[in-house]
């Protein structure tokens, strides 16, 4: 049963996944090439600028995880909500919670793969030219953006599963506020005290779609 469920999700998401892979690879390549070019122009001045200004090189990636999370949730959930097809899925001989968990889990796994792959490639590329402190600074500055991608995915699933349009707008208001928390302009490392709270928010977001699904199942219109 799970294999069939995952296969269904794969069919819905595969084209988007290919597109996201291309976009993320392009962004990683562009970031690395720009950095390499700046490095070779004047290595000493470039390093000193980084140390003096506590600047980062991963800025081009900032909103990509957010876009990926939102798009993946829409691609997975729109066909389900069209003509209320989700009803068929929820009638499968499997606990509804497990069905929802596998749908969200599939999306989170895809995003994890994409984020880990591109993040690792980027940081390893930067490590060739910079010492661990500078690479760590890039990592810690971009960590909230990756977490924002997961949260955006879960909250978009929550909004998409909601059967009533007016309620979708009401759900979108706190969701937008929550997501904006992950994208505040701050120095690298400034998010460190907030990261445990963002993790709690991200974890709580996993359970929100269940409430929309319950309302859907009860036929709220």
């Amino acid at each position: 049963m799970y294999t069939s469920l995952f296969y269904k999700e794969w069919i819905k998401a595969r084209k988007l996944l290919l597109l996201l892979l291309v976009v993320f690879a392009a962004a990683v390549a562009y970031t690395l090439l720009t950095t390499i070019k700046q490095f070779h122009a004047n290595p000493v001045a470039f390093w000193e600028f980084i140390v003096e200004n506590n600047s980062i090189r991963t800025g081009y990636m900032r909103y990509l995880p957010l876009g990926a999370g939102i798009l993946l949730a829409i691609v997975q959930l729109t066909p389900e909500m069209h003509n209320r097809r989700l009803k068929l899925t929820l009638h499968l001989p499997l606990d509804e919670s497990k069905i929802l968990c596998s749908m969200s889990g599939f999306g989170l796994a895809l995003l994890s793969g994409l984020f880990i792959l591109s993040g690792t490639a980027l940081l390893l590329g930067l490590r060739i030219y910079f010492c661990p402190e500078i690479v760590y600074s890039d990592f810690i500055a971009s960590l909230p953006w990756w977490m924002g991608g997961f949260t955006a995915y879960l909250l978009t699933v929550w909004i998409c599963l909601e059967p009533v349009w007016k309620q979708r707008i009401f759900n979108a208001i706190p969701a937008l506020c929550c997501i904006s928390l992950f994208y505040t302009k701050a120095l690298p490392g400034a998010y460190v005290p907030l990261l445990p709270w963002l993790t709690v928010l991200m974890t709580a977001g996993f359970f929100f779609p269940f409430y929309s699904a319950i309302r859907f199942k009860h036929g709220v219109q």
Partner: peptide, 18 residues
């Protein structure tokens, strides 16, 4: 589906904090 009540409380609490 279980825990409807708890999930609603979590949503209200998160919304309140926001």
């Amino acid at each position: 589906m279980k825990h409807q009540h708890i999930i609603r409380i979590a949503i209200v609490l998160a919304g309140t904090l926001v």
